[in-house]
Design a protein around this nucleic acid. Structure first.
Lengths: 139, 139
DNA sequence: ATTCAATATTGTAATCATTACATTTTATCA
DNA sequence: TGATAAAATGTAATGATTACAATATTGAAT
């Protein structure tokens, strides 16, 4: 992406170093990070950063549909910069969340039933490819 | 369902009035209730009920795959007795969560890629049919 | 460049759902 | 009916998130 400044301008959001750093972090890390992950990483290069700012920034970016929160693990919110519809895979073993590029043919059906759909969320839980390999190796 | 006693027996779980009440509640209310909803309702007819018991019971029923927790709203867990794969619709207006009987053709694809899938979760967010009608009426 | 008002950041305190834990009670079985 | 393992209960602790007041910064007008 890169042009975080124009992205914020386009949404009439003020340009602040904190917001730019958070956007960049989400754009360059595909881990669907938690608030703590973002906070702890950015704190190193931006020591004055407050965790509240991370919460506030993520909230306003979400309000403007620049990012989306994920409620997958059930005990902590995670964030995703991608806004096109896609799905996720949560590995029970390593805890990582991967993107899955599949499209959902059910959306149309549901819309045809009259539902007004604004968001689509889908995820699978199981053992990812890497962890399966690792388990094979350790046998 | 009805035969909650045998369901618990089948899983070698002790039969307690609390567990039976919770099972019955989930079986007869399709609201995907929160812990508080369950607790507050059952408290009326079972005044000694403790919220911890509700948590514990839901936890053990989940462990035995009799129920499943839903992480849809993002700020509170909800529970669902149905164990066959289905999806949900969260209404932004009334907050209700409805069941959607659709099947996901992507499961096979993901499995063919080698993923070991243990759970499938999908939900849509938008405005439900009832709330759309209501909004029409109030115009 | 300077000023100013609106907005963002910060730190602390409060909240809410959930979990930990010790004690009492109950279910099950010999 | 008693013994024992497990469950229920109540309170305290935890952890993520939110509320709020004070300070700092952004962006626009001058």
């Amino acid at each position: 992406m890169k042009d975080y400044i124009n992205l914020l301008k386009k949404h009439n959001l003020k340009i602040t170093p904190q917001r730019l750093a958070i956007l960049k972090y989400l754009d360059t890390h595909y881990t669907h990070p938690t608030v703590d992950e973002i906070y702890n990483t950015l704190k190193k290069t931006n020591p004055s950063l407050s965790k509240t700012t991370v919460y506030n920034s993520l909230e306003i970016l979400n309000t403007h549909h620049i990012i989306q929160p994920l409620h997958i693990t059930g005990h902590e919110r995670r964030y995703d910069l991608r806004k096109d519809i896609h799905h996720h895979f949560l590995c029970r073993s390593c805890g990582n969340i991967q993107d899955l590029d599949i499209n959902c043919p059910n959306i149309k059906k549901i819309q045809e039933q009259g539902y007004n759909i604004e968001e689509v969320h889908g995820y699978f839980k199981g053992i990812c490819l890497d962890c399966q390999k690792r388990e094979e190796t350790h046998k």
